[in-house]
Simulated scan of single mutants.
Amino acid sequence: MLIDSHCHLDAAEFDADRAEVIARAEAAGVSAQIVPAIALSGFAKLRDLCASNTSLHPAYGLHPMYLAEHRPEHLRALGEWLERERPVAVGECGLDFFVEGLDHDAQRMYFTRQLELARDFDLPVILHARHALDDVMAAIRRVGALRGVVHSFSGSEEQARQLWKLGFCIGLGGPLTYDRAKRLRAIVARMPIEYLLLETDAPDQPLAGHRGERNEPARLAEVLATVAELRGEETAAVALATSRNCERLFRLPRAVSVN
């Protein structure tokens, strides 16, 4: 059984056929999904979706790419949601220095406060770190007492090692399936598997062979196959290890425990 550690199943792209998408995921062996929020405006929809299906687990956060939607008072509201709803994580949050026009200082303010909330509520963080990985790691060190995952990791092997020393996992999905992703593929081939999470980031980041298509959690099985091939291991062993990693990090209930 597999766990998709990062899937935006609440996105509008799935509104027309969400039940079918979930059914295809289950048929492909995906027993659970972590569904991270991106803005306060979507929290209620995400809560209701996850309440309707025990295989879906919510995380609440303020994504840096949606900076224009965020207000300082949303941080207070986020704390209230964390206390009331008890999600599995804080996120998706982080820093994005790739997209032009996103104020870096404002991003840092929202990010630091969310790290502090994660620390105070003893929750893992789901991190977005695009062209900002060193800054993200510096913030993790400043706040301290944190655990989590850098999703869609795209850094170097040395940066990955620094994250592992901090107790953080890396999440990998569609980009890994492309032959040109030589650095990522080399990292996966050699890394300690206890720090690896599998993800789709659906509906985004389509896999090789599905370019231009909407991504969906059922394709996590293809990510698994790529990881197993790169490591020279059986798919069942990789599925077991990465699912246990997810269960441990997010403290998932026994209902989705891997036996």
Rank of each mutant, 00 (worst) to 15 (best):
S55W: 01
H70Y: 12
H104G: 00
Q162F: 01
R130F: 09
E80Q: 14
G173Q: 06
G167N: 12
L49A: 01
L172C: 03
T112A: 12
Y178M: 10
R84T: 13
K45T: 04
T112I: 15
F97P: 08
Q107A: 07
C50M: 08
D135K: 12
V90Y: 01
H70T: 13
R76I: 15
L127D: 12
L123T: 09
S154H: 07
L133E: 13
D105M: 08
L127I: 15
V143D: 08
Y60K: 10
P58H: 05
M109R: 14
L78Y: 02
H104V: 08
A129F: 07
F111N: 11
T112M: 09
R76K: 15
A139I: 14
Y66I: 10
V88T: 09
E100L: 10
D179P: 05
E100F: 03
F153P: 10
V99N: 09
H74T: 02
L123Q: 07
L117H: 06
A118D: 02
A59Q: 13
L56P: 01
P58Q: 02
L56F: 09
L176N: 05
L62R: 13
P64V: 00
G167C: 14
T112L: 11
T54A: 15
P64R: 04
I140P: 10
L115H: 02
G94N: 13
F98N: 12
G148P: 00
M109T: 15
